Amino acid sequence: MATVHLWQAGLDCDRSQLAHYAQRLSPDEQQRADRFVKPLHRDRFIAGRGILRGLLGQCLGIAPERLQFSYGAHGKPDLAYPANSGWQFNLAHSEDQSLIALTQGAAIGVDLEKIRPIPQLDQLTARFYAPDEHAQIMSAPIADRETLFFRYWTCKEAFLKATGEGLGKLQHLQLALGRSAQEEPVRIITLPESPPTAWQLRELPLTDGFVGAIAVAHGEIAISFNSFQSGEFLC
């Protein structure tokens, strides 16, 4: 069984916390932060990366600023230093919330989204989702369609982040969701071309107004879930 350590973390923090997190960033992360036009988006990026580094540093027994990351063809991060630690991780964020997942010895991906109105929902779903998924969303009560859209989206993106294949494979991944996010695991109907392995794909109980999912390349998982908001935690 793979143990997954999962945190939902608030990204809006005070200036002293933000300065603490900024000191951990690598030069390339600082350059990415500086490219954000809006200060709010820059600050949330810094907080997310700072918290990620703090949690990884605790697991590895290493100072957060010493960690080095490498990136796959579609941007999936991995640990370059220390090498061969066995730890896998993934990070997602939406608005003022983030999800951070850590595990050992298994590919992992997470995603979360704030539920919000979607212009041209019918056309967007028809383009990116399988016909059965599109039909389920558009036959749902109008008030439930955006939530169902994002439930599918987060499950698909979590899986594709775990495999490192990117969103170009979105329409090739067909899923079957339960009637609510608490019914788990999600059933995988068809997969993109990828190495055969056992997968666990689950929806997550998150803060009201958000949906999220986690994908792990393992036949059986146990999730240790924690959450903290701005000002509550300084790793």
Results as ranks from 00 to 15, higher is better:
1 M>H: 05
2 A>C: 13
3 T>N: 09
7 W>Q: 10
9 A>G: 14
9 A>W: 07
15 R>Y: 06
22 A>I: 03
23 Q>T: 11
25 L>R: 12
27 P>I: 15
27 P>M: 15
28 D>A: 15
31 Q>Y: 08
33 A>N: 09
34 D>Y: 01
35 R>P: 00
38 K>H: 12
43 D>R: 14
44 R>D: 07
45 F>S: 03
49 R>D: 03
51 I>R: 12
62 I>D: 00
66 R>C: 05
68 Q>V: 02
70 S>W: 01
70 S>T: 08
70 S>L: 01
76 K>V: 01
76 K>E: 12
77 P>D: 09
81 Y>K: 05
89 F>T: 07
90 N>F: 13
92 A>L: 05
95 E>D: 14
96 D>E: 15
99 L>G: 08
100 I>Y: 05
102 L>G: 05
103 T>C: 15
104 Q>C: 12
108 I>E: 00
111 D>L: 00
113 E>W: 13
113 E>N: 07
113 E>K: 11
113 E>D: 07
114 K>M: 11
118 I>L: 08
118 I>Q: 12
121 L>V: 04
123 Q>I: 08
124 L>D: 00
126 A>I: 11
128 F>Y: 09
128 F>G: 04
129 Y>G: 06
135 A>V: 06
135 A>P: 07
136 Q>G: 02
146 E>D: 13
149 F>Q: 07
149 F>P: 03
150 F>N: 04
153 W>N: 05
153 W>A: 01
156 K>T: 08
168 G>H: 05
168 G>N: 02
168 G>I: 02
169 K>C: 06
170 L>T: 13
171 Q>M: 07
171 Q>E: 08
173 L>S: 11
174 Q>T: 15
176 A>Y: 13
179 R>S: 14
180 S>F: 05
186 V>G: 03
187 R>Q: 15
188 I>K: 12
190 T>F: 00
191 L>N: 06
193 E>Y: 02
194 S>K: 09
202 R>F: 07
207 T>L: 10
209 G>N: 13
211 V>Q: 09
211 V>W: 05
215 A>Q: 06
216 V>W: 07
216 V>P: 08
216 V>G: 01
216 V>T: 11
216 V>I: 15
220 E>H: 09
226 N>W: 00
226 N>G: 03
227 S>F: 03
230 S>H: 08
231 G>T: 14
233 F>Y: 14
234 L>V: 10
